[in-house]
Amino acid sequence: MGHPFPFSYEILLPGLPIFWHTFYLFGSRSEFTIFAPDNGRSRLELLQVLITGLGQGCLYGLIALGFVLIYKATEIVNFAQGDLLMMGAFFGVTFIGIMKLPFGLGLLTTLLAMAVFGYLLDKLIIRSMIGESQFSVIILTISIGFILRSVAGGIWGNDLLALETPYSGEMANIYGLMISQEYLVVIAGTIVLSLALFLFFRHSSLGIAMQAASQNQLAAYYMGIPVKRVFSLIWAISALVSGVAGTLMAPISLVSPEMGFIGIKAFAAAVIGGFGSLPGALIGGLIIGCSEQLAGSYLPPGFQKVTAYLIMFLVLTLRPQGLFTQIQQKKV
């Protein structure tokens, strides 16, 4: 592969520790050049980039799923979703990394803690905002995000923490394709979670009650659905989903109070998916994850950070209601 190429990948991915170590594990650096003209090799690398993108996209999709869950049910846009993910990651680090629980048990504890956290957040603060204007709710959730970030910084410190898992650092070799296992776990976790959510909303009575409450709060109330509790439960589920995303993300990136800013990109994913549709959110996440990785590999530096927003702008300009929209026009 002795192809002289002016850029090393480090120049193309400045300041992104998240992705570096995936690439480092390939072995010697000279083996990995991005624009290698050798066809078979470059196709493999394209696949590599795409799979990393899928893994990253699944994370975006999971966070977007959290947004959409809450939005569908309560018409509240939770700008603190990224910070819920951050809390999830910190819980994961606490239970698995610091308290040394076995991974499965630690994950379960994390999810439980997140669910309780989400439930209480709704019950204590958000519930009083039902029926208020969307704008007030946006500001409320943004400020909750600020509070969470500050509290997390106070409890766990502002340093970067790492989470060791049984599967981290391992590479899976699939037909010559080297993929970091962390990403495989992310993809698998996303599939399992989406299936579980699908079954829950389709078949359980609580899930159906949630759908009813999301379609018309008053009508659901008349039908005997405890709308308030259902909303709190939806917050619990959404926080749980972000907990999963946080724990899956923790081994890939490092854990810090600032990691919640990923939520803004997930937002773009949810918008692309149309905000009303759960599969749309996942697809939006995948679109953003893949295109971001592609932009990072094939476009000048700086593009990777804004790809998500550029795509979102494009989608919103062409279809202001999103790609897979379910929101109808407002009646007079």
Binding site: I139, S143, I144, I147, S150, G154
Partner: peptide, 16 residues
């Protein structure tokens, strides 16, 4: 640490 943004958040929540 992070007292100021946190306080910003708290004040906003209280006002809203």
């Amino acid at each position: 640490p992070g007292l100021e943004p946190g306080l910003f958040g708290v004040i906003l929540v209280l006002f809203i």
